[in-house]
Design a protein around this nucleic acid. Structure first.
Lengths: 136, 136
DNA sequence: CCGTATCCGCTCGGATACTG
DNA sequence: CAGTATCCGAGCGGATACGG
């Protein structure tokens, strides 16, 4: 945000493409699901819509466009009737894939532990009258 | 994957803790920065604030609380004056660490390519009058 | 089948001010 | 030092309707 003034001549990419933003796009809530789903091979719009639980059509479209714009997905339109559109990973995205699945597998392994940690945290926060008591 | 029949015991954590939500917390915009920064060893609040470019105090606090609640960070208060609070990764989070750095390194490697892909996409979208023309 | 467009509630998140 | 509290604008995201 408050970037000290860089030379505008060469490194536009540094300004235009902060790491945090790239990661945010790539590791976004739906992006991971989409990329993992598309990793098996070309996949159609409605297949994505059905395979990703809870995503709305709007959010699917928005994420697909953003991933395409970032060069992670290619969109291929087959001029048939009815229309058929397929999305595939680019080389860049295939390289990303293993990190994503690693993340997902980690989340699966620790999902239970996380749920327990939340319960513990919440019950602890609820029962601390001797410290959190604002006297009336 | 989406609709295999779950046992009741798993169903509880499944409801309380959807995979997508876990990933969203863990791979969130600021979460990654925080976890990576805390991986080197116990780190203080202001150290985090200074080392993470662009984060506000509010967002830092919110993310720290959420990570603590999810069992990824431990918060240790040293009863000194002035007060000293340190955050450390839990075992669960240290296991996550390598996937996160993998992601970050990927983002660094391809930051330039992504910036170029965006430029290409935008210029293509701007100059396609023969296909995108909405006839009046 | 594969989207786009519009409305709108709701949350995110920065700015600011105040405590132990 | 390490937060909490409150305000408030921006934009995310669901619902709905429509088009090629």
């Amino acid at each position: 945000m408050s970037r000290s003034h860089t030379h505008v001549s060469e490194e536009v990419t540094d300004q235009a493409c902060p790491l945090v933003e790239v990661i945010d796009h790539v590791a976004g809530k739906w992006s991971i699901s989409i990329l993992v789903a598309a990793a098996r091979g070309p996949i159609r719009f409605t297949e994505l819509e059905r395979s990703i639980e809870g995503i709305s059509r709007r959010m699917l479209t928005l994420n697909l466009r953003r991933l395409e714009r970032d060069g992670l997905l290619t969109r291929t339109v087959h001029p048939t009737v009815p229309p058929k559109v397929e999305y595939s990973l680019t080389a860049m995205a295939r390289e990303l894939y293993s990190y994503l699945t690693g993340l997902v597998e980690w989340a699966e392994r620790h999902r239970g532990a996380i749920a327990q940690a939340r319960t513990a945290y919440d019950s602890k926060a609820a029962a601390v009258p001797q410290a959190g008591q604002p006297h009336p």
